[in-house]
Amino acid sequence: MEKPYKEKETIEREDFWATTSNKQLSSVQHVKTILAQHGRPDIVVPDNVLFEGGDS
């Protein structure tokens, strides 16, 4: 049985440092854009979310 074709949604924004389809990385980029200057967020992400699949 063939798997149905699933289109990847790629997030591309001028205020993001990377164009990616990785939703976890997009969330981290979003937090950075809304963080106040010198702000310090607490973010919990799965292991390797920032380095998997070349999305860095």
Rank of each mutant, 00 (worst) to 15 (best):
I11N: 04
I11W: 04
I11L: 10
I11Y: 06
E12A: 15
E12M: 07
R13T: 07
R13N: 06
E14L: 12
D15C: 10
F16R: 00
W17D: 13
W17M: 12
A18F: 02
A18Y: 00
A18I: 07
T19D: 04
T20D: 00
T20E: 01
S21W: 08
S21H: 14
S21Q: 10
N22W: 03
N22L: 03
N22H: 03
N22V: 00
N22T: 00
K23W: 04
K23S: 11
Q24N: 13
S27A: 15
V28Y: 01
Q29F: 02
H30K: 15
H30W: 07
H30F: 14
H30M: 03
V31C: 01
V31H: 01
K32I: 15
T33N: 07
I34M: 14
I34T: 15
I34R: 14
L35A: 07
L35C: 10
L35G: 03
L35R: 12
A36Y: 14
A36D: 11
A36Q: 12
Q37F: 02
Q37Y: 08
Q37M: 06
G39Y: 02
G39V: 06
G39K: 06
G39H: 07
P41M: 10
P41I: 11
P41C: 12
P41F: 09
P41H: 11
P41Y: 10
D42F: 15
D42W: 09
I43W: 04
V44R: 11
V45M: 09
V45P: 00
P46F: 06
P46S: 09
P46Y: 11
D47M: 10
D47P: 15
N48R: 09
N48F: 07
N48L: 09
V49N: 02
V49Q: 03
V49T: 14
L50R: 04
L50C: 04
L50Y: 04
L50P: 00
L50H: 03
F51V: 15
E52F: 04
G53L: 07
G53I: 06
